[in-house]
C-alpha cells in the first residue's frame, strides 16, 4: 500500500481556506487536504497526521496570523527532523521583505504565492511541489503519477529505478 501524503493549508481567514480546499479537490483522492486556522492548530494537525502515519508533503501557509507567524512556523518545521522534507509554501499578501528573506534562508522556502492568486495556480504549485517531495523522499512515484500532471510525472519517471522482475 502506498504512503498517504497530505497537504496542509494554514490561514486565519476561513474564506481563503475554503477556496484553497475547493481548488485542491482534484488531488483529494491521493493527497488529502487538511486545514488549520493558525500555527497552533497546524502543529496539532501535524501531530495527528504523524499518529496516523500520514506524511505531510506540502504546506501552504499564510504569514500574518493571530499568535505565531507563518514564517516562524515554517522555520520551526525546517529545524524539526520529521518535517524538514515537507515542501513549504508561503501564501500571503503581507509578508514583508525581512520575513520573506527569513523564510527563504531559514525555512528552505519552496515557493511564494502572492494573494490574490490566479485560478488554478494553487493546484499547479501543489502538483509540482508534491512531485518534488516524492522525488526527495525516494518514494515509489507510480501510485501518484496521474495526479501530478504530465510534465511532473515525466520528470519523476525519468529517475524511476525499478528493475525488471
Amino acid at each position: 500500500m502506498s504512503q498517504t501524503i497530505a497537504i496542509l493549508c494554514v490561514d486565519d481567514e476561513p474564506d481563503v481556506l475554503e477556496v484553497a480546499v475547493r481548488e485542491l479537490a482534484p488531488l483529494e483522492d491521493v493527497f488529502p487536504v487538511e486545514t488549520a486556522a493558525n500555527a497552533a492548530e497546524a502543529r496539532e494537525c501535524m501531530e495527528r497526521l504523524e499518529r496516523e502515519r500520514t506524511a505531510l508533503g506540502v504546506i501552504f501557509c499564510d504569514h500574518i496570523m493571530p499568535g505565531e507567524t507563518g514564517v516562524d512556523l515554517l522555520v520551526a518545521m525546517t529545524n524539526d527532523e520529521r518535517r524538514r522534507q515537507t515542501r513549504k509554501i508561503l501564501l500571503t499578501g503581507q509578508a514583508g521583505l525581512d520575513a520573506t528573506v527569513k523564510a527563504v534562508n531559514q525555512a528552505d522556502l519552496a515557493h511564494y504565492i502572492a494573494k490574490p492568486w490566479d485560478k488554478d495556480e494553487l493546484l499547479q504549485v501543489a502538483r509540482r511541489q508534491m512531485g518534488l517531495y516524492i522525488a526527495a523522499c525516494g518514494l515509489d512515484p507510480l501510485p501518484y503519477l496521474q495526479y501530478l500532471g504530465p510534465e511532473h510525472a515525466a520528470t519523476l519517471l525519468r529517475d524511476y529505478r525499478e528493475a525488471d522482475r
Binding site: 504530465p150 519517471l157 525488471d164
Partner: peptide, 19 residues
C-alpha cells in the same frame, strides 16, 4: 535495456504529448 527502464523512458517521452 531492461523492459522497465525502456517503458519509463518511452512514457516520459510520450505522456506530455499524448496528454
Amino acid at each position: 535495456m531492461s523492459n522497465t527502464a525502456t517503458t519509463a523512458m518511452m512514457i516520459t517521452v510520450a505522456i506530455p504529448i499524448v496528454a
